[in-house]
Structures are given as structure tokens and as C-alpha cells.
């Protein structure tokens, strides 16, 4: 029993996309343009060569926020989307009817349709693979060259993530929506 979350030291991110490939290989995700659980976003650079705005070019890694107050779960008509005992928001593919409501409800574009099962898929903190094996790292966290990600139990005051959230400033995405994300961006 834990309440897993992830803190992202996102300013370390170099947009190498190791995390994206690790996730696909670990979790057997389909290839294809919109089939991804995880992504790194970049903004278009501002300014005119050579006077570019260095701050306009952030690399922003993201994935499902594992909202404590998850709209996707709330709207699911069959409880296919649920929060497991570790606070991980997951989809039970046997129960998913592909009504796509959750895809519309998620404010983070974290969900997509898996073309094999034709059900909705998303990041599940590697719950079916690594966590199921008793490991305590996610594939994306483990592989990252610049160690952007800190994954761990938010309920454990001694965990690295709890420590880092106590000692460093952070923000979460679209916090005003009240989704209470468990992904934290360290500043």
C-alpha cells in the first residue's frame, strides 16, 4: 500500500526521449504517432536569430498525472477507470466500453486508444510490469540520462520524493482544475 507519485526535475530534461522508448518497450505499447503514454513537449522558439529567447525553449516531460481527484475516473460509466491501492489511476480493459468519455475529461491529453484491445490506455506507473514484479522504479525514471524523475511513495515521509517535495519548490499542471495531480514539477 503506497501512494505513488512522481517529481520531475524537468529543467534537467534534454528531450532525448529515452523515457518514451523505455515506456514503449517495457509496457509493450504500440508504435504510432498518437500511441504514447508519455511524451516530452517543446515550445516553438521565440525571437529572431541570433537573438533567441532561451527560456522559450523548455523541454516539458509529461504523462498521466495520476490525479488524486481524477476526472477520468469520475466520468467512467463502468468504473473501468479506477484508482488502485497504490494511488495509481488505472484502466481495467475488461470493463472499458470505449465510450471515450475519459479521453475528453482528462485535462492533460494523457489517454489514448490501444488499437489491439480497442480500450483506453494510459500511463499506469508500470503497475502491470515493474511494480507487479516488486520493483520500485518505473521504466521512464530508471532510464533517464539526466535523472529527471523521482518516483516514490508520497505517504512515506522518508521517501526521496517526499523529501524533495518538502525541500524544493514545485508546481503541478492545471492545478486550478482541482484535479490534484501526483506529478510534481520541480523548479
Amino acid at each position: 500500500m503506497a501512494r505513488y507519485g512522481m517529481a520531475l526535475d524537468y529543467k534537467n530534461c534534454i528531450n532525448c526521449k529515452a523515457c518514451e522508448t523505455a515506456c514503449k518497450e517495457e509496457n509493450g505499447i504500440l508504435m504510432g504517432a498518437d500511441k504514447h503514454r508519455i511524451w516530452v513537449g517543446t515550445g516553438e522558439i521565440e525571437g529572431q536569430y541570433p537573438l533567441l529567447d532561451l527560456t522559450s525553449n523548455v523541454f516539458h516531460p509529461s504523462q498521466c498525472q495520476h490525479c488524486d481527484n481524477a476526472p477520468c475516473e469520475e466520468v467512467c460509466p463502468t468504473q473501468a477507470t479506477y484508482t488502485d491501492e497504490n494511488g495509481v489511476v488505472r484502466v481495467n480493459i475488461d470493463q472499458c466500453i470505449l465510450c471515450s468519455y475519459c479521453m475528453n475529461a482528462c485535462p492533460y491529453d494523457a489517454r489514448y486508444v490501444d488499437d489491439r484491445t480497442m480500450t483506453v490506455d494510459k500511463c499506469n506507473f508500470c503497475a502491470e510490469t515493474r511494480l507487479a514484479r516488486g520493483e520500485t522504479t518505473t521504466a521512464c525514471q530508471n532510464t533517464c540520462p539526466t535523472k529527471v524523475r523521482i518516483f516514490g511513495d508520497l505517504d512515506d515521509p522518508n521517501s526521496e520524493i517526499s523529501e524533495v517535495l518538502r525541500t524544493r519548490e514545485h508546481y503541478s499542471l492545471k492545478a486550478h482544475l482541482g484535479t490534484k495531480p501526483k506529478l510534481f514539477y520541480l523548479t
Binding site: 469520475e74 473501468a80 472499458c96 466500453i97 470505449l98 480497442m118 480500450t119
Partner: peptide, 22 residues
């Protein structure tokens, strides 16, 4: 609905009563 039959079953077995679609 991608899986109408599943819908019939789980609408009843595991109703998502917070769901407007339900």
C-alpha cells in the same frame, strides 16, 4: 460505444454513478 455488449454488462455490474454517461 466501442464495446456495446460490455457496456450492457458493466453498466449493471459496476455502475459508475458519478458518470453522466451512466
Amino acid at each position: 460505444i466501442g464495446h456495446p455488449v460490455t457496456m450492457m454488462i458493466y453498466n449493471i455490474l459496476t455502475p459508475g454513478i458519478t458518470s453522466a454517461i451512466w
